[in-house]
Design a protein around this nucleic acid. Sequence first.
DNA 1: CGGCGATTTGACATCGCTCAACGCTCGTGG
DNA 2: CCACGAGCGTTGAGCGATGTCAAATCGCCG
Lengths: 251, 251
Amino acid sequence: MLVRVHDPVQLLSHKFRNIAELSAEELDALAAVPIRVVSMAADQSIVIQDDPDPQSFVLIQGLACSFKVNGDGSRQIVAFHLPGDMPDLLSLGFGRADATIATMTACTIGLIRNDHLRELFAKGLAVALWHVLAADAAITREWVVNLGARNSLSRTAHLLSELFARMQAIGAVKGDSFELPITQQELGDALGISVVHVNRSLKTLRMQGLISWVGVKVSILDRVALAEVGSFVGDYLHFAREKPNALPVRK
Amino acid sequence: MLVRVHDPVQLLSHKFRNIAELSAEELDALAAVPIRVVSMAADQSIVIQDDPDPQSFVLIQGLACSFKVNGDGSRQIVAFHLPGDMPDLLSLGFGRADATIATMTACTIGLIRNDHLRELFAKGLAVALWHVLAADAAITREWVVNLGARNSLSRTAHLLSELFARMQAIGAVKGDSFELPITQQELGDALGISVVHVNRSLKTLRMQGLISWVGVKVSILDRVALAEVGSFVGDYLHFAREKPNALPVRK
DNA sequence: CGGCGATTTGACATCGCTCAACGCTCGTGG
DNA sequence: CCACGAGCGTTGAGCGATGTCAAATCGCCG
């Protein structure tokens, strides 16, 4: 069940089948969609708006994020995007995007023209696409809870628990570790706390033996305790049919 | 453009036409959907999960909210729902809801069976429904920014600006005032700050001459200044074709 | 080796929370 | 009609969590 595909169609069909049983026709329709594969360097904004021919995309490889810049110049990351995600489905219906989507590492993305997406809509994949959008929205809502109702230690633990579960769901966890090539500054921009305090929170988690973070490699040493510190309950991730071990139960 | 309809079909067709031009057929399809109108008292959860026959609903009258309860017992309101909103579109694809939807005042809701919604999907209203879901998601994302990147005064100002704009869009603003029958406790649960501090923030806004709040009546005395304090830029509300005066410009 | 960005740590300032008290309004029961 | 209590709003005082500033260290890359 390890999925490490770099073929966008395979990636998407895996994702969609995780949501609903797809007929052969639907799979064919999916396979027939032209997808233009593009490589990007790290720290680039993925510009879609100015494209004369509006496109959505699926993230194939790498790590990306969406962020908004506040009036005072601070920036708030509103979502992390992992391979298989379709970050700008949200702005599909709107003419404009209200958040910037940017790569955090070198990324491969698969561009899909919006009119082709709409054809998929008509061809029975509406439910799957709806689910994808709704699952992203559910994560965003949980972020509201994270930022509004939890202190900095708890927030940090929650986000790491979430990322662990999502990485696991796409087969990006080896043992208890995954790669998270982001800076503490970026983490702070997502958690709404200062870099200095991110550092302190991580130190506490490390000292409590819950995680280790060396270079880009994050290890979840005690996922149950980490989830407890972060009040993490993974239901909101809505992994429809395939349940990763995201909801640890004390033995 | 004042809309004060208590007929759910009219409410929805107004909302959808605000997004895309609908054909006569599409309007007919919408009008043909059976909607069961139900009245509810204040402070009730709107239970959909246990219904043997899963339904979504449109809020016709009143004020409602979605909230999640954190592990430590605190609750975080993740959305306010105004007339015309369809609060649980998000959980349509999922078997379960991960947030509680509750009335804050006496409400009238219009229940729509999910299979009827899916028919609308097939009948050309997919784009409109997609837009509704995406617009809600965009608001949630802005809430992430509000909670993560702004201090308590700014948060409060931003939320009031948002509610003013949304109230205005549904014709619920008279002059510079609208009715907001919620307690400071509830406001605090939405803003992620304590009741005491909500009170202090409101006091500051009042003393600066930006708002007045008497009983349930909120008046926005200086919407430009309020927007400035809250770093409010209403683009994210995605009022598609009808632009309320949500984006004040200094003269 | 030198330099730059990221991490780490300490000291101090500030924001927002908690606790506590008081007033106001409204509904209820005597 | 009045007394009372409940819920909400308001305010003050003290404290704790988190931000800011500054500096040292580390690691990587040229």
